[in-house]
């Protein structure tokens, strides 16, 4: 059993004390984590080092220090490991003169698939591009281009799928379709690693997160568990009611409430004692004749976890 939340049992992808620097700039600093079957979100603001980490994972760039193993092999030197690896890069990476079908077939052929045309058709169908398969990818919208890249990453049926901001440029329907596709892959036992700086996206896809900030591993594990571990940071709670000022004034007298922000329909509370606040709020509402419509923690969203991680540095 592993003890660190950044590590998993039976990993398919391992990152061991990896650092990468470009001249004087440190892009990734001493990161150790691992990924196994299931979906893991790689989270961090733009420039945090996510793309550099993913490019090291795929072998596109070498770590300055440490090692990266995909199914026990170093992908950069063992090209056979690419049979088990599919990668969707953030940048375009498309041959604009090829049709969708030709492009995905090309990927299948280079990956050694026995019937490349049929595999390409199936992959395009999986991402919902069958109707546009015979159009040149140069004329595709950004969302279609993203889906084409996903199709080519899936065409050889890899066990490990690494996706760098795969939902960029997709509309809500496409996004929902891709998210359900990634989740379906994890149900088949695949290892899926998705990077994103859009917090809600990751939150919709998975509970397991590796958070990177300034090139360092800032947090790992279950989103709620990460939040609970930050005991020195006040909890944020939102309360919606009809008499916000009355209830806000009453709450300020309660020990453990650090601040109250009032607007027309809601109160935003910072407290060190979430359980205590929960136990007194009903009584306060009755005493002051306030009608409560919502009482919810704001902190267990990825947004707040992320804000803390970034703000703490």
């Amino acid at each position: 059993m592993t003890t660190s939340p950044a590590l998993v049992d039976n990993p398919t992808v391992e990152i061991n004390a990896v650092s990468k620097w470009f001249g004087q700039k440190v892009a990734v600093s001493d990161v150790t984590c691992s990924f196994g079957p299931g979906l893991t979100g790689l989270l961090g603001p733009n420039g945090a080092g996510k793309t550099t980490l993913l490019r090291m994972l795929t072998g596109l760039i070498r770590p300055s220090q440490g090692e990266v193993l995909v199914k026990g092999q170093e992908p950069r030197t063992q090209v056979d490991s690419y049979k088990e690896l599919g990668f969707v890069p953030e940048e375009s990476a498309l041959y604009n003169m090829l049709t969708g079908q030709e492009y995905v077939t090309y990927g299948a052929r280079l990956s050694g698939v026995s019937d490349p045309e049929r595999a390409a058709k199936a992959a395009l169908e999986e991402v919902g591009l069958t109707a546009d398969a015979d159009r040149p990818v140069g004329g595709f919208s950004k969302g279609m281009r993203q889906r084409t890249k996903v199709a080519v990453a899936l065409v050889h049926n890899p066990e490990i799928l690494i996706l760098d901001e795969p939902l960029n440029g997709t509309d809500p329907v496409q996004r929902a379709h891709l998210i359900s596709l990634f989740q379906a892959l994890t149900e088949r036992g695949n290892t899926v690693i998705v990077s994103s700086h859009v917090l809600q996206e990751v939150e919709r896809m998975t509970d397991r997160v590796i958070a990177i900030v300034d090139g360092k591993l800032a947090a790992a594990g279950d989103i709620a568990a990460i939040r609970r571990a930050m005991s020195d940071i006040p909890y944020r709670v939102v309360i919606e009611c009809d008499k916000t000022r009355t209830l806000g004034a009453a709450l300020l007298d309660h020990e453990g409430v650090f601040s109250v922000t009032v607007d027309e329909r809601s109160l935003h509370i910072e407290t060190s004692d979430l359980a205590g606040l929960g136990s007194i709020i009903a009584g306060l509402a009755v005493t002051h004749d306030v009608r409560l419509s919502r009482f919810a923690p704001e902190d267990e969203s990825l947004e707040s976890v992320f804000r803390y991680l970034v703000g703490g540095r």
Partner: peptide, 15 residues
């Protein structure tokens, strides 16, 4: 220029 190098090299074929 077209950023397609990653497509090409991430395949199980020798350099």
């Amino acid at each position: 220029r077209d950023n397609t190098m990653s497509f090409l090299v991430l395949r199980p074929i020798s350099r």
